[in-house]
Design a protein around this nucleic acid. Structure first.
Length: 219
DNA sequence: CGACCCACCACCTTACATCA
DNA sequence: ATGATGTAAGGTGGTGGGTC
């Protein structure tokens, strides 16, 4: 016999209480039992159409929640196989004293719950991945900034070296009116030629105190 | 082959129980 | 008392198999 859906969820506690009452207050206990024997009328599920009028147990006042034992059995069965063939459905239904339709519905709802849970897990996984990627992006952006600063420092060093070299060559040169561009190639990075500085052609005689222009940035 | 029925499914929704 | 949550079940539309 399935318990009414209106019965307390915690049946052990309920039974304990009833046991105590029957022991110490037999009159009250018999009164309570008599009252319980009369099924309380339950609100029927409102019908939205006449489609389910002739359905099996649908719309019938009474049990709603399945007992823990029934749920355990269904869970076990579902764990073994998530698909429900009609033979198995009939068997489970008769074992649990349920309408086969109820077993089918339970399986449908169980599959839906499983799917929803899987979706949630997938979402959590993707979110964690996304968060990791955001952190990594931030780290890489910082790295880019740091490297840009290094480049900037290197450019300043180069500029200083060029100025020093220019000073030395003007002392050594017989003609101080020698055009600047010949010995002092413009800093290409400042003119939008980033990345091309170390591949541009430099005449072989452009040596300044043993300092080679080519691959100046190779460090 | 097409029409019909039936069972099943996914998906959405509703009604209700339970809990915080 | 009440809003949030979980769950049984209703409703709908799609699909596949069986039958006529």
């Amino acid at each position: 016999m399935n318990r009414r859906s209106g019965a307390p969820e915690n049946m052990n506690l309920y039974d304990d209480q009833m046991g105590l009452i029957s022991q110490y207050y037999p009159e009250i206990y018999s009164q309570v039992v008599q009252e319980q024997a009369v099924e309380k009328p339950r609100r029927n599920r409102r019908k939205r159409s006449k489609a389910g009028e002739s359905g099996s147990s649908s719309g019938v006042a009474g049990k709603r929640k399945l007992s823990q034992e029934q749920v355990n059995m269904l869970e076990m069965s579902f764990g073994n196989q998530q698909k429900l063939e009609s033979q198995r459905k009939e068997k489970i239904a008769s074992q649990l004293g349920l309408d086969p339709r109820q077993v089918a519905v339970w399986y449908q709802n169980r599959r839906a719950r499983l799917k929803s849970k899987k979706l949630e897990e997938e979402y959590s996984k993707l979110k964690a991945e996304h968060d990791c990627n955001v952190v990594e992006k931030c780290r890489l952006e910082n790295e880019v900034l740091r490297l840009k600063e290094q480049v900037c420092e290197a450019e300043k060093d180069i500029q200083r070296l060029l100025e020093r070299a220019d000073g030395i060559s003007s002392i050594n040169s017989p003609s101080s009116s020698f055009p600047m561009e010949v010995l002092d190639p413009p800093f290409l990075g400042g003119f939008g030629f980033e990345g091309l500085e170390n591949v541009l052609y430099v005449p072989q005689n452009d040596y300044i105190n043993g300092l080679e222009w080519v691959n100046l940035y190779d460090m």
